[in-house]
Design a protein around this nucleic acid. Structure first.
Lengths: 197, 197
DNA sequence: AAATAATTTTAATGCAGATTAAAATAATGC
DNA sequence: GCATTATTTTAATCTGCATTAAAATTATTT
Protein backbone atom coordinates (compact mmCIF):
# COMPACT_ATOMS: atom_id res chain seq x y z
CA UNK A 1 0.00 0.00 0.00
CA UNK A 2 1.37 3.41 -0.99
CA UNK A 3 1.97 5.75 1.90
CA UNK A 4 -0.82 8.22 1.29
CA UNK A 5 -0.16 8.95 -2.34
CA UNK A 6 -3.90 9.25 -2.31
CA UNK A 7 -4.92 11.48 0.56
CA UNK A 8 -7.72 10.25 2.72
CA UNK A 9 -11.20 11.10 1.57
CA UNK A 10 -11.53 13.02 4.80
CA UNK A 11 -8.57 15.28 4.13
CA UNK A 12 -9.64 15.90 0.56
CA UNK A 13 -13.13 16.89 1.58
CA UNK A 14 -11.82 19.07 4.35
CA UNK A 15 -9.57 20.85 1.85
CA UNK A 16 -12.46 21.40 -0.51
CA UNK A 17 -14.40 22.79 2.40
CA UNK A 18 -11.66 25.26 3.31
CA UNK A 19 -11.46 26.52 -0.24
CA UNK A 20 -15.22 26.86 -0.42
CA UNK A 21 -15.18 28.75 2.86
CA UNK A 22 -12.37 31.06 1.75
CA UNK A 23 -14.29 31.76 -1.43
CA UNK A 24 -17.44 32.65 0.48
CA UNK A 25 -15.69 34.78 3.07
CA UNK A 26 -13.88 36.78 0.41
CA UNK A 27 -16.95 37.12 -1.75
CA UNK A 28 -19.74 37.66 0.74
CA UNK A 29 -17.85 38.86 3.79
CA UNK A 30 -17.59 36.99 7.02
CA UNK A 31 -20.88 37.94 8.60
CA UNK A 32 -22.58 37.58 5.25
CA UNK A 33 -21.46 33.98 4.99
CA UNK A 34 -23.54 31.36 6.75
CA UNK A 35 -22.43 27.78 7.11
CA UNK A 36 -25.23 26.97 4.73
CA UNK A 37 -23.57 29.13 2.08
CA UNK A 38 -20.37 27.15 2.41
CA UNK A 39 -22.24 23.85 2.49
CA UNK A 40 -24.21 24.77 -0.62
CA UNK A 41 -21.00 25.24 -2.58
CA UNK A 42 -20.08 21.67 -1.64
CA UNK A 43 -23.49 20.15 -2.27
CA UNK A 44 -23.77 19.37 1.41
CA UNK A 45 -25.96 20.37 4.27
CA UNK A 46 -24.73 22.86 6.85
CA UNK A 47 -24.69 20.31 9.65
CA UNK A 48 -22.31 18.14 7.66
CA UNK A 49 -19.54 20.68 8.09
CA UNK A 50 -19.42 19.85 11.78
CA UNK A 51 -18.00 16.50 10.87
CA UNK A 52 -14.87 18.29 9.73
CA UNK A 53 -14.71 21.22 12.06
CA UNK A 54 -15.73 22.01 15.61
CA UNK A 55 -17.48 25.27 14.79
CA UNK A 56 -17.49 28.31 12.53
CA UNK A 57 -14.65 29.93 14.41
CA UNK A 58 -12.43 26.95 13.69
CA UNK A 59 -13.42 27.09 10.04
CA UNK A 60 -12.18 30.64 9.80
CA UNK A 61 -9.08 29.74 11.74
CA UNK A 62 -8.20 26.92 9.37
CA UNK A 63 -8.77 29.20 6.39
CA UNK A 64 -6.26 31.61 7.87
CA UNK A 65 -3.77 28.85 8.56
CA UNK A 66 -4.01 27.84 4.92
CA UNK A 67 -3.52 31.43 3.84
CA UNK A 68 -0.45 31.68 6.05
CA UNK A 69 0.89 28.43 4.60
CA UNK A 70 0.64 29.73 1.09
CA UNK A 71 2.70 32.77 2.00
CA UNK A 72 5.24 30.77 3.96
CA UNK A 73 5.77 28.29 1.14
CA UNK A 74 6.35 31.06 -1.35
CA UNK A 75 8.81 32.67 1.01
CA UNK A 76 10.77 29.49 1.61
CA UNK A 77 11.04 28.66 -2.07
CA UNK A 78 12.15 32.19 -2.87
CA UNK A 79 14.81 32.17 -0.17
CA UNK A 80 16.09 28.83 -1.37
CA UNK A 81 16.34 29.73 -5.03
CA UNK A 82 17.02 33.47 -5.23
CA UNK A 83 20.33 35.25 -5.51
CA UNK A 84 20.28 38.86 -4.32
CA UNK A 85 17.75 40.30 -1.88
CA UNK A 86 15.88 41.94 -4.72
CA UNK A 87 15.85 38.74 -6.71
CA UNK A 88 14.46 36.82 -3.76
CA UNK A 89 11.73 39.39 -3.27
CA UNK A 90 10.74 39.15 -6.93
CA UNK A 91 10.65 35.38 -6.75
CA UNK A 92 8.67 35.47 -3.55
CA UNK A 93 6.11 37.85 -5.01
CA UNK A 94 5.77 35.73 -8.11
CA UNK A 95 5.27 32.52 -6.14
CA UNK A 96 2.87 34.01 -3.64
CA UNK A 97 0.75 35.77 -6.17
CA UNK A 98 0.74 32.71 -8.41
CA UNK A 99 -0.53 30.59 -5.55
CA UNK A 100 -3.17 33.12 -4.57
CA UNK A 101 -4.78 33.35 -7.98
CA UNK A 102 -4.13 29.74 -8.94
CA UNK A 103 -5.13 26.32 -7.72
CA UNK A 104 -4.17 26.92 -4.10
CA UNK A 105 -6.67 29.77 -4.06
CA UNK A 106 -8.91 31.22 -3.09
CA UNK A 107 -6.86 32.44 -0.19
CA UNK A 108 -8.84 33.99 2.61
CA UNK A 109 -8.32 37.64 3.46
CA UNK A 110 -7.56 37.82 7.16
CA UNK A 111 -10.27 40.29 7.99
CA UNK A 112 -11.60 38.63 11.08
CA UNK A 113 -8.57 37.76 13.12
CA UNK A 114 -10.02 39.63 16.10
CA UNK A 115 -13.05 37.36 16.08
CA UNK A 116 -10.88 34.31 16.62
CA UNK A 117 -10.62 32.88 20.07
CA UNK A 118 -7.44 34.01 21.86
CA UNK A 119 -5.41 30.89 21.26
CA UNK A 120 -6.18 30.81 17.56
CA UNK A 121 -5.75 34.52 17.24
CA UNK A 122 -2.31 34.33 18.80
CA UNK A 123 -1.26 31.54 16.46
CA UNK A 124 -2.38 33.42 13.38
CA UNK A 125 -0.84 36.68 14.52
CA UNK A 126 2.43 34.94 15.23
CA UNK A 127 2.51 33.43 11.74
CA UNK A 128 1.59 36.77 10.31
CA UNK A 129 4.39 38.59 12.10
CA UNK A 130 6.83 35.87 11.20
CA UNK A 131 6.02 36.39 7.56
CA UNK A 132 6.34 40.16 7.76
CA UNK A 133 9.66 39.77 9.52
CA UNK A 134 10.93 37.39 6.87
CA UNK A 135 9.93 39.82 4.18
CA UNK A 136 11.62 42.72 5.90
CA UNK A 137 14.73 40.59 6.23
CA UNK A 138 14.78 40.21 2.45
CA UNK A 139 14.61 43.95 2.04
CA UNK A 140 17.49 44.39 4.45
CA UNK A 141 19.47 41.73 2.66
CA UNK A 142 18.89 43.59 -0.57
CA UNK A 143 20.05 46.86 0.92
CA UNK A 144 23.20 45.22 2.18
CA UNK A 145 24.03 43.45 -1.06
CA UNK A 146 23.31 46.63 -2.97
CA UNK A 147 20.40 45.35 -5.03
CA UNK A 148 17.90 47.53 -3.15
CA UNK A 149 18.16 51.23 -2.44
CA UNK A 150 18.15 52.21 1.25
CA UNK A 151 14.62 52.77 2.53
CA UNK A 152 12.36 52.56 5.55
CA UNK A 153 12.22 48.78 5.74
CA UNK A 154 9.16 48.47 7.92
CA UNK A 155 7.04 50.87 5.88
CA UNK A 156 8.18 49.45 2.59
CA UNK A 157 7.29 45.99 3.78
CA UNK A 158 3.87 47.12 4.90
CA UNK A 159 3.25 48.82 1.59
CA UNK A 160 4.13 45.81 -0.53
CA UNK A 161 2.42 43.23 1.66
CA UNK A 162 -0.71 45.38 1.71
CA UNK A 163 -0.93 45.23 -2.06
CA UNK A 164 -0.61 41.48 -2.03
CA UNK A 165 -3.07 40.95 0.78
CA UNK A 166 -5.65 43.11 -0.92
CA UNK A 167 -5.68 41.12 -4.17
CA UNK A 168 -8.52 38.80 -3.18
CA UNK A 169 -10.68 41.87 -2.68
CA UNK A 170 -10.79 42.59 -6.39
CA UNK A 171 -9.72 39.33 -8.01
CA UNK A 172 -12.63 37.00 -8.46
CA UNK A 173 -11.30 34.06 -10.42
CA UNK A 174 -11.10 35.45 -13.93
CA UNK A 175 -8.29 33.48 -15.58
CA UNK A 176 -7.26 36.32 -17.87
CA UNK A 177 -6.88 38.66 -14.95
CA UNK A 178 -5.01 35.96 -13.04
CA UNK A 179 -2.42 35.84 -15.80
CA UNK A 180 -2.10 39.59 -15.77
CA UNK A 181 -1.59 39.65 -12.02
CA UNK A 182 1.13 37.04 -12.13
CA UNK A 183 2.88 38.84 -14.97
CA UNK A 184 2.59 42.38 -13.66
CA UNK A 185 2.50 42.39 -9.88
CA UNK A 186 5.99 41.20 -9.04
CA UNK A 187 7.43 43.82 -11.35
CA UNK A 188 5.15 46.64 -10.23
CA UNK A 189 5.71 45.98 -6.55
CA UNK A 190 9.47 45.68 -6.80
CA UNK A 191 9.99 48.50 -9.29
CA UNK A 192 10.41 51.06 -6.56
CA UNK A 193 12.97 49.02 -4.68
CA UNK A 194 15.75 48.61 -7.18
CA UNK A 195 18.81 50.68 -6.66
CA UNK A 196 19.25 53.10 -9.54
CA UNK A 197 22.77 52.31 -10.71
CA UNK B 1 -27.15 83.66 13.43
CA UNK B 2 -24.17 82.06 11.74
CA UNK B 3 -25.09 79.56 9.09
CA UNK B 4 -24.10 76.39 10.90
CA UNK B 5 -20.65 77.46 11.97
CA UNK B 6 -21.53 75.22 14.85
CA UNK B 7 -22.91 71.95 13.53
CA UNK B 8 -26.01 70.65 15.16
CA UNK B 9 -25.50 68.49 18.22
CA UNK B 10 -27.15 65.70 16.24
CA UNK B 11 -24.64 65.82 13.41
CA UNK B 12 -21.70 65.99 15.76
CA UNK B 13 -22.85 62.99 17.74
CA UNK B 14 -23.58 61.08 14.58
CA UNK B 15 -20.06 61.79 13.36
CA UNK B 16 -18.56 60.63 16.62
CA UNK B 17 -20.63 57.50 16.29
CA UNK B 18 -19.35 56.79 12.80
CA UNK B 19 -15.77 57.18 13.91
CA UNK B 20 -16.35 54.93 16.89
CA UNK B 21 -17.96 52.37 14.61
CA UNK B 22 -15.12 52.53 12.10
CA UNK B 23 -12.67 52.05 14.92
CA UNK B 24 -14.48 48.99 16.20
CA UNK B 25 -14.98 47.44 12.80
CA UNK B 26 -11.30 47.81 11.93
CA UNK B 27 -10.15 46.63 15.32
CA UNK B 28 -12.57 43.83 16.14
CA UNK B 29 -13.88 42.90 12.74
CA UNK B 30 -17.44 43.34 11.61
CA UNK B 31 -19.02 40.29 13.15
CA UNK B 32 -16.91 40.77 16.26
CA UNK B 33 -18.38 44.22 16.76
CA UNK B 34 -21.71 44.46 18.52
CA UNK B 35 -23.68 47.68 18.71
CA UNK B 36 -22.89 47.61 22.40
CA UNK B 37 -19.18 47.78 21.59
CA UNK B 38 -19.75 50.93 19.55
CA UNK B 39 -22.05 52.40 22.18
CA UNK B 40 -19.52 51.70 24.93
CA UNK B 41 -16.93 53.78 23.13
CA UNK B 42 -19.39 56.67 23.19
CA UNK B 43 -20.53 56.20 26.76
CA UNK B 44 -23.98 55.36 25.48
CA UNK B 45 -26.27 52.41 25.52
CA UNK B 46 -26.70 50.29 22.42
CA UNK B 47 -30.32 51.28 21.95
CA UNK B 48 -29.31 54.93 21.74
CA UNK B 49 -27.61 54.33 18.41
CA UNK B 50 -30.99 53.73 16.84
CA UNK B 51 -31.72 57.39 17.32
CA UNK B 52 -29.08 58.11 14.69
CA UNK B 53 -29.33 55.17 12.43
CA UNK B 54 -31.99 52.75 11.28
CA UNK B 55 -29.96 49.58 11.93
CA UNK B 56 -26.50 48.07 11.93
CA UNK B 57 -26.42 47.73 8.18
CA UNK B 58 -26.95 51.46 7.80
CA UNK B 59 -24.19 52.09 10.32
CA UNK B 60 -21.75 50.15 8.18
CA UNK B 61 -23.04 51.84 5.07
CA UNK B 62 -22.45 55.29 6.51
CA UNK B 63 -18.96 54.30 7.60
CA UNK B 64 -18.21 53.31 4.04
CA UNK B 65 -19.65 56.53 2.68
CA UNK B 66 -17.35 58.45 4.99
CA UNK B 67 -14.40 56.36 3.85
CA UNK B 68 -15.27 57.08 0.24
CA UNK B 69 -15.56 60.79 1.01
CA UNK B 70 -12.09 60.90 2.47
CA UNK B 71 -10.66 59.39 -0.71
CA UNK B 72 -12.68 61.62 -2.97
CA UNK B 73 -11.65 64.79 -1.16
CA UNK B 74 -7.99 63.86 -1.36
CA UNK B 75 -8.38 63.15 -5.05
CA UNK B 76 -10.12 66.45 -5.78
CA UNK B 77 -7.56 68.50 -3.93
CA UNK B 78 -4.71 66.71 -5.65
CA UNK B 79 -6.20 67.23 -9.10
CA UNK B 80 -6.77 70.91 -8.36
CA UNK B 81 -3.28 71.62 -7.08
CA UNK B 82 -0.90 69.23 -8.84
CA UNK B 83 1.10 69.78 -11.98
CA UNK B 84 2.12 66.59 -13.77
CA UNK B 85 0.35 63.25 -13.45
CA UNK B 86 3.03 61.97 -11.14
CA UNK B 87 2.87 65.08 -9.01
CA UNK B 88 -0.90 64.76 -8.67
CA UNK B 89 -0.55 61.14 -7.64
CA UNK B 90 1.99 62.04 -4.98
CA UNK B 91 -0.24 64.80 -3.67
CA UNK B 92 -3.25 62.55 -3.69
CA UNK B 93 -1.41 59.83 -1.77
CA UNK B 94 -0.18 62.34 0.78
CA UNK B 95 -3.64 63.82 1.34
CA UNK B 96 -5.42 60.51 1.49
CA UNK B 97 -2.95 58.88 3.81
CA UNK B 98 -2.86 61.98 6.00
CA UNK B 99 -6.61 61.90 6.35
CA UNK B 100 -6.68 58.19 7.09
CA UNK B 101 -4.23 58.33 9.97
CA UNK B 102 -5.25 61.77 11.19
CA UNK B 103 -8.35 63.41 12.59
CA UNK B 104 -10.69 62.22 9.85
CA UNK B 105 -9.81 58.67 10.79
CA UNK B 106 -10.29 56.01 11.63
CA UNK B 107 -11.46 55.18 8.13
CA UNK B 108 -13.35 51.91 7.81
CA UNK B 109 -11.91 49.14 5.70
CA UNK B 110 -14.57 48.12 3.23
CA UNK B 111 -14.55 44.46 4.12
CA UNK B 112 -18.27 43.93 4.27
CA UNK B 113 -19.63 45.53 1.16
CA UNK B 114 -21.34 42.26 0.22
CA UNK B 115 -23.31 42.36 3.45
CA UNK B 116 -24.89 45.68 2.53
CA UNK B 117 -28.38 45.73 1.15
CA UNK B 118 -28.39 45.95 -2.65
CA UNK B 119 -29.14 49.65 -2.89
CA UNK B 120 -26.39 50.59 -0.47
CA UNK B 121 -23.99 48.11 -1.96
CA UNK B 122 -24.50 49.59 -5.40
CA UNK B 123 -23.90 53.09 -4.13
CA UNK B 124 -20.68 52.13 -2.39
CA UNK B 125 -19.42 50.09 -5.32
CA UNK B 126 -20.14 52.96 -7.67
CA UNK B 127 -18.14 55.37 -5.51
CA UNK B 128 -15.39 52.83 -5.26
CA UNK B 129 -15.14 52.34 -9.01
CA UNK B 130 -15.30 56.06 -9.56
CA UNK B 131 -12.30 56.51 -7.32
CA UNK B 132 -10.33 53.75 -9.01
CA UNK B 133 -11.11 55.25 -12.37
CA UNK B 134 -9.97 58.67 -11.26
CA UNK B 135 -6.73 57.21 -10.00
CA UNK B 136 -6.11 55.35 -13.21
CA UNK B 137 -6.76 58.54 -15.10
CA UNK B 138 -3.94 60.17 -13.16
CA UNK B 139 -1.61 57.37 -14.14
CA UNK B 140 -2.56 57.79 -17.78
CA UNK B 141 -2.11 61.52 -17.54
CA UNK B 142 1.36 60.90 -16.16
CA UNK B 143 2.24 58.54 -18.96
CA UNK B 144 1.12 61.08 -21.52
CA UNK B 145 2.94 64.00 -19.97
CA UNK B 146 6.05 61.86 -19.57
CA UNK B 147 6.26 61.95 -15.79
CA UNK B 148 5.33 58.28 -15.48
CA UNK B 149 6.86 55.34 -17.32
CA UNK B 150 4.43 53.32 -19.47
CA UNK B 151 2.83 50.51 -17.46
CA UNK B 152 -0.26 48.40 -17.06
CA UNK B 153 -2.51 51.11 -15.73
CA UNK B 154 -5.18 48.90 -14.24
CA UNK B 155 -2.78 46.63 -12.40
CA UNK B 156 -0.64 49.49 -11.19
CA UNK B 157 -3.71 51.22 -9.86
CA UNK B 158 -4.85 48.10 -8.07
CA UNK B 159 -1.42 47.61 -6.54
CA UNK B 160 -1.14 51.13 -5.16
CA UNK B 161 -4.72 51.38 -3.96
CA UNK B 162 -4.37 48.02 -2.24
CA UNK B 163 -1.50 49.33 -0.17
CA UNK B 164 -3.48 52.36 0.87
CA UNK B 165 -6.65 50.44 1.65
CA UNK B 166 -4.76 47.97 3.79
CA UNK B 167 -3.26 50.60 6.09
CA UNK B 168 -6.02 50.47 8.71
CA UNK B 169 -5.27 46.78 9.11
CA UNK B 170 -1.93 47.45 10.76
CA UNK B 171 -2.15 51.09 11.83
CA UNK B 172 -3.79 51.43 15.21
CA UNK B 173 -3.53 55.06 16.13
CA UNK B 174 0.10 55.38 17.20
CA UNK B 175 1.03 58.98 16.45
CA UNK B 176 4.67 58.20 15.73
CA UNK B 177 3.72 55.59 13.20
CA UNK B 178 1.19 58.00 11.71
CA UNK B 179 3.97 60.47 11.02
CA UNK B 180 6.08 57.78 9.46
CA UNK B 181 3.25 56.69 7.18
CA UNK B 182 2.58 60.21 5.97
CA UNK B 183 6.27 60.80 5.35
CA UNK B 184 7.09 57.48 3.69
CA UNK B 185 4.06 56.10 1.91
CA UNK B 186 3.60 58.64 -0.87
CA UNK B 187 7.24 58.23 -1.80
CA UNK B 188 7.31 54.44 -1.52
CA UNK B 189 4.15 53.97 -3.54
CA UNK B 190 5.13 56.34 -6.31
CA UNK B 191 8.80 55.36 -6.49
CA UNK B 192 8.11 52.67 -9.07
CA UNK B 193 6.14 54.97 -11.31
CA UNK B 194 8.60 57.68 -12.15
CA UNK B 195 10.09 57.64 -15.59
CA UNK B 196 13.82 57.12 -15.41
CA UNK B 197 15.15 60.13 -17.31
C1' DA C 1 -23.82 -10.27 2.92
C1' DA C 2 -23.50 -9.15 7.59
C1' DA C 3 -21.19 -6.11 10.51
C1' DT C 4 -18.73 -2.12 11.41
C1' DA C 5 -17.20 2.38 10.51
C1' DA C 6 -17.56 6.79 8.02
C1' DT C 7 -20.35 10.40 6.32
C1' DT C 8 -24.50 13.04 5.83
C1' DT C 9 -29.16 14.43 6.91
C1' DT C 10 -33.27 15.55 9.58
C1' DA C 11 -35.17 17.83 13.07
C1' DA C 12 -34.65 20.31 17.28
C1' DT C 13 -32.61 23.46 20.45
C1' DG C 14 -30.28 27.58 22.07
C1' DC C 15 -28.60 32.02 22.23
C1' DA C 16 -26.14 36.28 21.28
C1' DG C 17 -27.12 40.24 19.71
C1' DA C 18 -30.20 43.17 16.83
C1' DT C 19 -34.29 45.50 17.20
C1' DT C 20 -38.50 47.86 19.30
C1' DA C 21 -41.72 50.42 22.39
C1' DA C 22 -42.52 52.98 26.14
C1' DA C 23 -40.73 55.48 29.92
C1' DA C 24 -37.28 58.61 31.80
C1' DT C 25 -34.14 62.26 31.50
C1' DA C 26 -31.94 66.24 29.54
C1' DA C 27 -32.00 70.28 26.63
C1' DT C 28 -34.23 74.26 24.55
C1' DG C 29 -37.48 77.80 23.60
C1' DC C 30 -40.93 81.03 25.41
C1' DG D 1 -40.48 78.14 35.54
C1' DC D 2 -43.49 75.69 32.01
C1' DA D 3 -44.09 73.41 27.80
C1' DT D 4 -42.09 71.29 24.10
C1' DT D 5 -38.70 68.88 21.80
C1' DA D 6 -34.49 66.09 21.63
C1' DT D 7 -31.88 62.38 23.48
C1' DT D 8 -31.10 58.31 26.16
C1' DT D 9 -32.39 54.37 28.89
C1' DT D 10 -34.91 50.36 30.52
C1' DA D 11 -36.85 46.32 29.64
C1' DA D 12 -38.77 43.25 26.48
C1' DT D 13 -39.09 40.80 22.24
C1' DC D 14 -37.61 38.72 18.11
C1' DT D 15 -34.80 36.09 15.04
C1' DG D 16 -31.28 34.23 12.16
C1' DC D 17 -27.93 31.17 12.47
C1' DA D 18 -24.86 28.31 14.86
C1' DT D 19 -24.94 24.26 17.13
C1' DT D 20 -26.39 19.46 18.73
C1' DA D 21 -28.32 14.74 18.97
C1' DA D 22 -30.16 11.02 16.91
C1' DA D 23 -31.41 8.70 12.80
C1' DA D 24 -30.42 7.52 8.05
C1' DT D 25 -27.44 6.62 4.51
C1' DT D 26 -23.29 5.34 2.30
C1' DA D 27 -18.78 3.17 2.24
C1' DT D 28 -15.50 -0.48 4.04
C1' DT D 29 -14.06 -4.46 6.14
C1' DT D 30 -14.16 -9.41 7.13
Amino acid sequence: MAINVEETRFQLQKDRMLKAAAHCFNEKGYSGTSLKDVADRLGLTDAALYYYVRNKEELVYLCYLRAADVGRDAMQQAIASGSSGLDKIRRYLKKHVEAMVGDAGPVAIMSEIPSLKPEHRDTVLALSRKHSTAFEALIEEGIEDGSIAPCNVRMTGNAIMGSVNWIPKWFHGDATVAGEIVREFPEILSAGLARGN
